[in-house]
Design a protein around this nucleic acid. Sequence first.
DNA 1: AAAAATATTTAGACAAATCTAAAAAATTAA
DNA 2: TTAATTTTTTAGATTTGTCTAAATATTTTT
Lengths: 221, 221
Amino acid sequence: MNYSQSEENYIKSIYHLQGDSKNVSTNELAEELHTRPASVTDMLKKLKAKKLLHYEKYQGFRLSTEGKKVALSIIRRHRLWEYFLSVKLQFAWDEIHEVAEELEHVSSKKLIDKLDEYLGFPKFDPHGDPIPDQLGKIATTDHILLTELTANQIAEVSSVANQSAAMLDMLKHNNIGIGTRIEVKKKFPFDHSLEIKIRNLPAFTISERLAQNIYVKYVKK
Amino acid sequence: MNYSQSEENYIKSIYHLQGDSKNVSTNELAEELHTRPASVTDMLKKLKAKKLLHYEKYQGFRLSTEGKKVALSIIRRHRLWEYFLSVKLQFAWDEIHEVAEELEHVSSKKLIDKLDEYLGFPKFDPHGDPIPDQLGKIATTDHILLTELTANQIAEVSSVANQSAAMLDMLKHNNIGIGTRIEVKKKFPFDHSLEIKIRNLPAFTISERLAQNIYVKYVKK
DNA sequence: AAAAATATTTAGACAAATCTAAAAAATTAA
DNA sequence: TTAATTTTTTAGATTTGTCTAAATATTTTT
């Protein structure tokens, strides 16, 4: 089956919002897609008719098994293109997302499988997110949120939850990238901000909001 | 300026049909695009409003300078992707066109310029057609139509004018590809078909129609 | 040069994806 | 447990790209 760009964007966003199968609300999805709730309702009816999601009026919705399969194949395309842009074309880390958003809608399965092979079947994209294989399987990671990291423990940035330009710009400004080693020096109870240290730079503070979007994994000292 | 996929397909087809600036007709374009003449008229009005073509009711049409510029940038994208699919992803010669038709609509200029660099600034695509550079310049070739080739003269296939699946299938069936050396043994005045010889294969006949779609260039014996 | 044939355009409709404004349902607060 | 607020849906429009059928121009034939 083939889906329109618009349908694919809805499916992908629902997949990200529902996480481990919580129900997604109309307003939430409208905000994520920068569209209006009324437009979301319209599209939901269509996706329901195609059996891609479970949806009852006023009750929220969630992808069906088939819907998840479709979502994973879109995510596979997106992340393979990100890997290609970064590793082969030398795009900067914060430039790849936007271009991959366009490339992901090219639907030839053969193209994607050949690209995967050409790239050497990478398991993670440049943001540290896992790339689903042909069957939709994704490698598991042991990462945790930076907010959950114990003080004075060193960990390595493994992925970011949010890839908005504003977020990526902020990370760049703070010299944080995939693989950056971070140590939490202090947690401030007042606003839950964190003082962190990177390499030999002076320690500095980041907001809880930002820290909630950074995944890290422990690393031997 | 950015154009829709549909607009881009019209511009590209007009460019191919007009050749060295002959006027294109509504029916001709409708057939090329597998659409209806009425739809063509609708789109022409839109493209005229965007100053991409010269068009007066019932008089045929032709791309403006700006329109040609746009056409060349679409062709650039298409041929670079064809080159990538063929050289990097090892797609067969007759499979690349269809996928490139989709990829060509991804519009990031940076993507295309980086891809060009990554591929080593190729001058010709796998079908032998020239790839426009960033400025729209295309390398010139000295190829002629196979129908124009003198008998008993050896020449090498340099490109094909038509990339329909039917055409590519026929070429494959006849063992003709870019670089194949062909000698015209005889021209039949009755239906203008040609008897040709390839390598050590027995000579065989091809139609005028097919020969009109094959470009060759002379080669020292 | 009129008639016939062909090419092109207009008029009006339709599907997809979106929107605004208003109605209806669900949730939260008083 | 009503009232107020928020969320969601419906109704009706709009834009883009397409279509069919009919009208109008142009070209070709007789």
